Amino acid sequence: MRTRILKVNPRRPELQKIREAAKMIKRGSIVAFPTETVYGLGANALDSKAVRKIFVAKGRPSDNPLIVHIYDKSDLARLAVDVPKIMDRISEKFWPGPLTVVLRKTKIVPKITTGGLDTVAVRMPSNLIARSLIREAGTPIAAPSANYFGRPSPTAAEHVLEDMNGRIGLVIDGGRTRIGIESTVIDLTSNIPILLRPGGVSIEQLQKEIGRVVIHPLLRGKKSRAAHRSPGMKYKHYTPNAQVILVEGQSGKVRKKIIRLAGKLKKQGKRVGVVCMSKARYNAHAVRVVGPSYEKFAASLFGTFREFDLKKIDVILVQAIPKKGIGFGIMNRLEKAASTKIKAD
């Protein structure tokens, strides 16, 4: 299969190009497209055969649920039942945007889309290309990140091609994504909302608007037999080819620890990459300063992993950050990607 690139203006999406991609969705094909978080691999969420193509292209386990993207708030009624009153406040404050809600699904939603669950994960993206595509396709679009399963999520069209070239027919190139990590996911099937995945909307923002939000035990490093109703809960994700070592502790001590580790690894013949919040003489083969803001860290994280893979880096040393604001989402991705966590002395 030949994978074609279709460049679209992210600020003023050309309608003719969007309709070309929408026709492919209507025919049951899959299309990669940008959202404000990462690039998604989209198909008609209500077409079982089309959705199955996503799982095949990604090499994704069939019990890993997909997120269904909608154009308008009114579309939620087609997909979900027993919608709590609090959803009005959530949609008013956070939609369109990087927040996904989990609700009881209607019969119209195929089980393959939900990973066999009786719940469905839904969000309304704010990216203009994504919104235009959903509108012109005339159907909700199921779309996990457009990478091969387990790899870092793509934040640019070239990242999609690294994993999906020859596997899908079309990639819409809308430039770099803004946020860089996936959406926040909350479960609304209980009396109190449960945070299933931290992301572009912080738990602090949620608590300010809707009150108490419970953090799922898995996010605290505890075991749980509860159903995994969100992507990113059950399997290892976001991993580059290089080994990722997460270094935790006070920032000054972390810098010193990374410098010592980099020197030790280089003596072992390893190519070393460093991801850090501030400049220092790390003596590594590749260094990416992702600070000073956590937002900058999030936007560049997955792209940095892919860049280091291209540079044949063997080990990536990453500075841990506090789990506050979007930092919670960043650390969630890093803990999923890391093979080792080390405390700075």
Rank of each mutant, 00 (worst) to 15 (best):
S230P: 00
V290A: 14
V81W: 03
L218E: 09
M87P: 00
R260C: 06
I5F: 07
S153I: 12
G211L: 05
I168A: 07
A143G: 04
T3C: 09
T155L: 07
S145C: 07
Y235H: 02
I194W: 10
R131G: 00
D63Q: 10
V247L: 12
K343H: 11
E14S: 08
H69Q: 11
I215K: 14
E248T: 12
P61V: 11
F308S: 05
R281P: 02
T100F: 05
L310C: 05
K208C: 13
I86G: 01
T155Y: 05
K341H: 13
M87H: 14
V31T: 08
R135Q: 09
S300C: 08
K236Q: 12
G116I: 02
P198D: 13
I194T: 13
S278D: 06
A299F: 00
I90N: 06
N9H: 04
D163R: 13
Y148D: 11
L246W: 12
V56M: 10
R271G: 12
T113P: 01
A142L: 04
V244P: 13
V272N: 10
V214Q: 02
R212Q: 12
M87A: 15
R271N: 10
G115R: 02
S251T: 03
D82Q: 12
L219R: 15
K17Q: 06
A80Q: 03
R4L: 08
M331S: 14
N283Y: 12
G325I: 09
T37M: 05
F302G: 03
R229K: 15
E248Y: 09
A45E: 05
V122T: 08
Q250D: 11
S91Y: 08
A143Y: 06
K222T: 06
A130E: 01
I258R: 09
I67P: 13
A320Q: 08
L76W: 05
A77Q: 07
I168S: 11
L41R: 09
T139S: 15
I54E: 11
R281L: 09
R52V: 03
R89A: 13
C276P: 00
